[in-house]
């Protein structure tokens, strides 16, 4: 993930040092122009006034953020009260993403561990098996989920046929469906980092723990988990962050009643009813949350690195 890219390896080699500015220029131009600049512009837009048909009027104001948090304006006649509508959408997104992360961890950790303890040849096959779904279009995977979970869908068919239930389970358009959708979308991201950590783990330590009278469960809890913590945390972040800003799962599986941040933002830019500054403001808030999480993570990594 970002951590891996940010290391870049050691800089011992300088064969092409002379040409480096020319070599870097294309990436700086393209990324600077089409990623960095847009984000800056978005920051600015979040402080502008909305125009009726979408777009903005260049008049600076705090209206967008105001609308997000408060009922009436900060500068209105009555005291502002906290507007919970939007905050609750954010809150719901946070705990949906959190739940999806926990679910992925419960399934992903044992899977990663099991794969990492297979003999070398089988291991490569398992990893291959787990990575394939990651390469399949997210939209298609979400659509497949939608198909599977429908009232008249194959899952309900199957459960009805084997007599487990009498009426079809109404899963679509509920929180549960969104949960499952998020969990399904990002599960491989949980498995792979944990797998990498467990693969590097020295199993003689588990033997030493058993030799010193620890049961298998205690060994897992006190010896293995601390050792693979970096992988677990990386996996959690790789599931939590995309889930937080997800759009497809809540939109296709959750329906109108299960708004998350992604749907909220998307709505601001659709057609004439949109409020661009508001959408920009909401994006800024989401971005800040993600940046804070990543900063905490990278400072933790640096501290852990110093201990080693």
């Amino acid at each position: 993930m970002a951590g891996g890219a940010a290391s870049g390896g050691s800089a011992a080699s300088d064969t092409y040092a002379k040409a480096r500015h020319w070599l870097l220029m294309p990436s700086w131009v393209v990324l600077g122009f089409f990623v960095f600049a847009p984000v800056c512009v978005m920051v600015i837009y979040s402080f502008l006034t909305k125009e009726f048909r979408g777009g903005v009027i260049w008049e600076p104001t705090l209206a967008a953020y105001d609308q997000f948090f408060f009922d009436r304006g900060l500068f209105g006649d009555s005291d502002p009260t906290l507007q919970w509508t939007y905050i609750s959408i954010f809150w719901r997104s946070i705990w949906q993403a959190g739940l999806a992360t926990i679910l992925s961890l419960l399934i992903g950790f044992p899977t990663a561990y099991y794969i990492a303890t297979r003999p070398a040849k089988t291991r490569a096959l398992w990893v291959f098996l787990i990575t394939i779904p990651y390469w399949v279009n997210l939209l298609i995977r979400t659509v497949s989920m939608k198909f599977l979970l429908r009232d008249e869908g194959p899952l309900n068919d199957f459960l009805l046929n084997i007599g487990l239930i009498n009426d079809p389970l109404h899963i679509i358009n509920t929180n549960l469906a969104v949960q499952l959708g998020l969990f399904y979308s990002y599960l491989p991201f949980m498995v792979l980092p944990i797998y990498a950590s467990v693969e590097r783990y020295n199993f003689t330590m588990s033997e030493a723990a058993a030799d010193l009278y620890a049961t298998k469960f205690t060994t897992l809890r006190r010896i293995l988990l601390p050792a693979v913590k970096p992988g677990v945390i990386a996996g959690c972040i790789l599931v939590f962050v995309p889930s937080l800003g997800a759009f497809l799962a809540p939109d296709l599986l959750g329906g109108a009643k299960n708004f998350m941040i992604g749907s909220l933002i998307e709505e601001q830019f659709k057609g004439n009813a949109g409020n661009w500054p508001f959408g920009a403001a909401a994006s800024m808030i989401l971005l800040s949350m993600v940046m804070i999480i990543l900063l905490i993570f990278s400072s933790q990594q640096r501290r852990a690195g110093a201990d080693q």
Binding site: A6, G8, G32, F34, P38, M42, I265, W276, A280, S283
Partner: peptide, 26 residues
């Protein structure tokens, strides 16, 4: 060097929807 690496990682670190909004606005 480090800022270059940071810039290259930027699209992966920013949530996709934020990137979408920013690009549209830009």
């Amino acid at each position: 060097r480090t800022p270059s690496l940071g810039l290259i990682s930027l699209p992966i670190m920013v949530p996709e929807i934020v990137l979408a909004v920013a690009t549209l606005i830009f």
